[in-house]
Simulated scan of single mutants.
Amino acid sequence: MNISGIQGEMQAMMLEASNTKATATGQTVSADFSKMLSSAINNVNSLQKASSDIQMRFDRGDENVSLSDVMIAKNKSSVAFDATIQVRNKLVESYKELMNMPV
């Protein structure tokens, strides 16, 4: 497994998130939240696909794939999916809170 590749992706996402623009009120707003969210979801999807592919290769007896590779890939996809679920829960919670605010 290539850990440096994951670290590089995380650093790229941090740089993308730090690209902000100032508004008229002085607050900063991210350049394009929907693009970042879509990219993160696509990343989770690719991790899950890679995990199932590596598991399938192991099940078929590929000698280049070890059990530890399968377990690491499964855990990475699981952590990424759990993080995505937590972000979704926070977004739904924030939406509900905004909708319940008095006008």
Results as ranks from 00 to 15, higher is better:
residue 65 V to Q: 04
residue 81 F to R: 15
residue 45 N to A: 12
residue 69 D to P: 04
residue 65 V to G: 03
residue 84 T to S: 13
residue 76 K to S: 07
residue 53 D to K: 15
residue 43 N to G: 13
residue 47 L to Y: 09
residue 46 S to W: 10
residue 45 N to F: 09
residue 66 S to N: 07
residue 40 A to S: 09
residue 52 S to K: 10
residue 79 V to H: 07
residue 46 S to H: 11
residue 32 D to H: 07
residue 75 N to I: 08
residue 78 S to E: 04
residue 61 G to T: 07
residue 60 R to S: 08
residue 31 A to R: 11
residue 35 K to F: 07
residue 44 V to L: 01
residue 41 I to N: 09
residue 45 N to R: 14
residue 47 L to C: 03
residue 32 D to F: 02
residue 82 D to N: 14
residue 30 S to P: 00
residue 65 V to H: 04
residue 43 N to R: 12
residue 57 R to F: 03
residue 61 G to I: 02
residue 46 S to E: 11
residue 38 S to G: 15
residue 74 K to R: 14
residue 69 D to A: 05
residue 82 D to Y: 10
residue 58 F to G: 09
residue 35 K to G: 07
residue 59 D to F: 07
residue 50 A to G: 12
residue 71 M to N: 11
residue 32 D to W: 01
residue 33 F to T: 03
residue 41 I to V: 13
residue 74 K to G: 03
residue 53 D to G: 05
residue 54 I to C: 05
residue 44 V to E: 01
residue 66 S to Y: 01
residue 79 V to L: 08
residue 59 D to N: 15
residue 61 G to F: 02
residue 85 I to Y: 10
residue 67 L to F: 09
residue 65 V to N: 03
residue 57 R to L: 12
residue 84 T to P: 03
residue 64 N to C: 07
residue 64 N to M: 11
residue 60 R to G: 02
residue 46 S to C: 09
residue 55 Q to R: 13
residue 42 N to Y: 06
residue 56 M to V: 14
residue 34 S to G: 06
residue 58 F to D: 08
